[in-house]
């Protein structure tokens, strides 16, 4: 039943994406139409999570499918509230595409079976820990979309007013996500102390999460100094999130990690490469755009 609800939520997100694009082209469409579909999807997903919670008797964050579904529900809510506040259909469309893609991956690429909670996961700290991650990652993900759009506009020297707005949105989203990320790190350490006697094991996953925290801490410091280069950290931060969330399972050190469940043998680096390649491509495209625009300007000025 919960799977059916999640699938329905996915279709609603796709509908919201369609409506959001319509809103981008046709501003006469009231913002409540796309955001209504989005909210309905998020509520359905919330109901699915509650159903699964009851079925499992525990917070449903015990498998990758459940964690991604939890994250997607958080992301949908963050998109909804940010869209209601800032009304930016283009960025919301991109974020919805990211949301639909991620949820499809969870629904159709992951094991959706209910799994019994293993003893180590039977801690209330785990529920707070994972929920914190989900909210921070949702917020950072939307921030990533805003920062990517902002960088593209900046490289093309278009819409300075919109650039200002996107920069403000990105900052607010990081500001919202950062306390949750901090809480995630803290509760993770408290849980580890309770379950395995030590709050920090120098584990690959732990450090990957800490790197994300460091990146956003650096961003907040640089933004405070009005350093425009800080917006690049939105892309770096998102790459770090994907790495900490999924990518860390595919690195050679994953076999020694307590947080990843990999089969013995040589890990395959190709999935990691594929996971990281969109971010590298995006960065290259953004650089390329700047070069093209600036090159064009230089050529024009020379001719004059």
């Amino acid at each position: 039943m919960d799977i059916l609800l999640t699938q329905t939520a996915l279709y609603l997100y796709l509908l919201a994406l369609l409506l959001m694009l319509t809103r981008a082209f046709q501003p006469r469409l009231t913002p409540w139409v796309p955001s209504g579909a989005l909210l309905l999807g998020a509520l359905l997903q919330l109901a699915a999570i509650i159903l699964r919670w009851r079925l499992l008797g525990w917070t449903p964050v015990t498998s990758l499918y459940e964690v991604i579904a939890y994250f997607c529900c958080g992301l949908a809510l963050v998109i909804f509230f940010t869209f209601r506040k800032f009304d930016f259909p283009w960025v919301a469309s991109l974020a919805l595409a990211l949301l639909a893609g991620t949820l499809s991956y969870a629904l159709y690429g992951q094991d959706t079976n209910v799994k019994m909670v293993v003893p180590a996961l039977r801690s209330h700290w785990m529920a707070i820990h994972v929920s914190s991650w989900c909210f921070s990652y949702s917020s950072f993900s939307l921030g990533f979309v805003a920062s990517a759009a902002l960088l593209a506009l900046r490289r093309l020297n278009l819409h300075p007013a919109l650039q200002e707005r996107l920069s403000a949105i990105f900052y607010r989203l990081v500001l919202f996500g950062f306390p949750f990320h901090t809480l995630g790190l803290i509760t993770g350490a408290v849980w580890a102390k309770n379950a395995w006697a030590s709050p920090w094991f120098h584990d690959a996953k732990e450090w990957a999460a800490a790197i994300t925290w460091l990146i956003y801490a650096v961003y907040l410091h640089l933004h405070h100094r009005e350093n425009k280069g800080a917006d690049w950290l939105g892309i770096l931060g998102m790459a770090s999130i994907v790495f900490a969330f999924v990518g860390v399972n595919y690195i050679p050190s994953a076999q020694q990690s307590a947080h990843t469940y990999v089969q013995p043998g040589e890990p395959d680096l190709m999935p990691l490469f594929w996971m990281m390649s969109p971010f590298v491509m995006l960065a290259l495209v953004l650089w390329g755009l700047g070069f093209w625009k600036n090159g064009l300007k230089t050529a024009t000025s020379t001719r004059r």
Binding site: A210, I211, L214
Partner: peptide, 13 residues
């Protein structure tokens, strides 16, 4: 962050 990234990627933990 850079040092930690090197540590994370190091095969022998």
């Amino acid at each position: 962050a850079i040092a930690a990234l090197v540590g994370v990627m190091w095969k022998d933990q």
